[in-house]
Design a protein around this nucleic acid. Structure first.
Lengths: 232, 232
DNA sequence: CGCTATGTTGATCCATATCAATAAGTGTGG
DNA sequence: CCACACTTATTGATATGGATCAACATAGCG
């Protein structure tokens, strides 16, 4: 692995407090690879051989059943994915593909488990990380079960707005087709949902979004920290 | 806390490997309470003051938004709930209520966090537990996003059948009203879904279920370990 | 035994999916 | 740099799963 990748990885919450010796031993077995877009990195059901870290680019976590497919989450730099499978030494529950050219670090799962056994700070950091992941999924599930697709879109836009700095104008970080899948709807329905938010002052042209009346949209969306705040 | 509760709690995966001294210190601050049915034990949004353990009875974890409510999960003895909130010292994401007379142990969250910092085996056990919880929610989300309500019901019945021993006849562990909410549908729709499974040999009278043609139902339900196997 | 909550059934409505056609991007090679 | 091909996005028409509303039946429970 190129030295330039070390610092980025070292700064991740799950690595930053661990002993240097242990970090080095993880990095020795790790390697970094550049992938083009649309490459399937892992397939659900396979044994979890590597902990993955997105260094640049974007990765889509998705699942399939009975010829249907749905996007579960999008992973952006710098963060790990499929930590739970690695720790439990269990099969992946989701597949992963690159959405664009991406740089991915791969750490052998058995190394992660070995260091997990040896380094208490690392074990603790993983607890925090997993608790965070767990709570994120719970929030996503509340979003799905308690809201209509229009409400999910409205709240997604508000979250995205906040993530991108809070200005009235911002860009969608996802292809609409994939956003639809993340939100649990069809692309056609997303198109219509976008129109459905026009009365609340939402303007979308291509990938660009403008929220013309923040209050109006928020009155409709009713964002709630226990669903929409992805920092706690 | 009565001594008789100790062994049950001690045997839980997250407690069984920890140092006795630490376990004792958790138990010293803990107390056990008997609650009648339909008592709200915790409310989402509140700070997580206690780690809860169901010793007997049944607890429903549910969430609300905008005057809607949905059941997220059902907790049965002997297991803990809201572990993630306790560890992160973050507000509860779900509310909890007893569904029947229940016996609940309460361990102050700050004690759990203190012991978590002091006992490495405990910290490791919590990792495993959280990874398990995380994977369960991911499975639930796949179930929700990839399946119709009829398919969810069919697979739920197969899971419940397995959990209760695998015989063709078994009992629903939940009120239908609540089952409907867990499955993400209305009670009316559940009634009709049950009828919709009659062609596949499913007979339901009251709380009693008989699967007359296992293969036929499985052909329809297409159960999948990456969604329906809640042991890995 | 009657009250109240739960479950069922029917009628209807609505949200969302599906199917089909067109438009608009986007990338590629000449 | 443009033309072509291919994917993605939009729009319309229609179908359908599931929700809602209302009436009734049933089952627990005090």
């Amino acid at each position: 692995m190129p030295d330039s990748d070390y610092p980025d990885i070292r700064e991740l919450d799950i690595f930053k407090d661990m002993q240097n010796e242990h970090f080095q031993s993880l990095m020795r077995g790790a390697y970094v690879q550049n992938f083009p877009a649309q490459i399937e990195l892992i397939t659900e059901g396979e044994p979890s051989d590597f902990l993955h870290i997105v260094l640049s680019g974007t990765v889509d976590l998705f699942s399939t059943w009975n010829n249907r497919e749905t996007s579960m989450a999008t992973v952006r730099p710098i963060s790990t994915f499929i930590l739970a499978a690695t720790i439990k030494d269990a099969p992946y529950l989701m597949s992963a593909r690159t959405l664009e050219k991406s740089r991915i670090a791969l750490i052998p799962s058995q190394d992660v488990r070995a260091v997990f056994d040896a380094d208490n700070d690392f074990a603790r950091a993983i607890v925090t990380e997993l608790a965070q992941c767990y709570r994120s999924v719970i929030k996503a599930q509340k979003d799905l079960k308690l809201r209509s697709s229009l409400e999910r879109l409205a709240n997604y836009l508000l979250r995205q707005q906040k993530r991108s700095g809070g200005a009235p104008s911002f860009d969608l970080a996802l292809e609409k087709r994939r956003l639809a899948s993340v939100l649990g709807m069809t692309p056609e329905n997303l198109s219509r949902a976008i129109k459905g938010l026009q009365p609340y002052g939402v303007m979308v042209t291509g990938t660009h979004v403008t929220i013309e009346d923040q209050d109006d949209l928020e009155r409709f969306a009713k964002p709630n920290p226990l669903i929409d705040d992805h920092t706690t």
